[in-house]
Simulated assay, not measured.
Amino acid sequence: MLIIALTGGIASGKSTVSRRLAEHGAVIVDADELAREVVEPGTVGLNAIRERFGDGVIAADGSLDRPALGAIVFGDPDALRDLNAITHPAVWQAATDRFAQAEASDPRAIVVYDVPLLVEASADRPLHFDRVVVVEADRDERMRRLVEDRGMSETDAQRRIASQADDAQRRAVADVVLDNNADRDALLARVDALWNELRSL
């Protein structure tokens, strides 16, 4: 089994790469999905968030009020660090469970761990992946995508980008950098070439 970490800043095009790899047959383990699972009602994660940030981040139905939490942590490095200390270990444990399931199902599987916050989440643990793939796009282009395509305000977009690792930090852990400043077809061609490389390992 190969485990490939796929990361990139918000609006870099990482999801496009992940979908293409899935089309080729990769097993996708989505850290964002796991992050939602580990803070569902009744979980240790949600209880810890309530204890740290208060009842104001809990919706009327008992679920996590993500906009309320985001308003607190994006722009407050200490609050974001506290949130990450709660969620990152839980997400990593869930991810390793999925890796083990994939290997049990197919020892030759190529597993792609789709993880936006790879650099941030690995600060307290070493990286152990067969390849680290970083999807990259210029900051101005990512801002445009967030504002025009996702309807985010410029202020919110700037805060989201600033809360993540920068390009240099991601490149420092990368084995492969996929540039996504050109058109979608150019990116997909790079992903196809990457898949062929991975299959040969």
Rank of each mutant, 00 (worst) to 15 (best):
L2K: 14
L2Q: 15
A5F: 07
A5L: 02
T7C: 03
G8F: 00
S12T: 13
S15P: 07
L21I: 07
L21N: 06
E23A: 13
V29L: 11
D30A: 08
A31S: 04
D32P: 09
D32I: 13
E37L: 15
G42D: 02
L46N: 01
I49F: 10
F53D: 04
G54D: 06
G56M: 00
A60R: 09
G62P: 11
L64S: 04
D65G: 08
D65I: 04
R66T: 08
P67M: 08
G70Q: 08
I72G: 08
P77S: 05
P77C: 01
D78H: 14
L80C: 09
R81N: 13
R81F: 09
D82S: 15
L83A: 06
T87A: 01
H88V: 04
V91R: 01
Q93T: 14
Q93G: 06
A94W: 01
T96V: 15
D97H: 14
R98E: 15
A100R: 14
Q101I: 15
E103Q: 13
D106K: 03
D106M: 04
D106I: 08
P107Y: 07
R108Y: 11
I110Q: 05
I110R: 11
Y113I: 02
D114P: 13
V115Y: 14
P116K: 04
P116A: 06
L117C: 00
A123D: 12
D124Y: 05
P126N: 01
P126Y: 00
H128R: 15
D140P: 04
M143V: 09
S153A: 03
D156A: 13
D156K: 09
Q158M: 12
Q158I: 02
R159A: 12
R160S: 10
A162Y: 09
A162V: 05
S163H: 02
A165G: 12
Q169K: 10
R170Q: 05
A174Y: 04
A174C: 07
V176W: 08
L178D: 07
D183T: 03
R184D: 12
A186C: 12
A189Y: 10
A193D: 15
A193T: 14
L194N: 06
N196I: 13
S200E: 13
S200R: 11
L201Q: 13
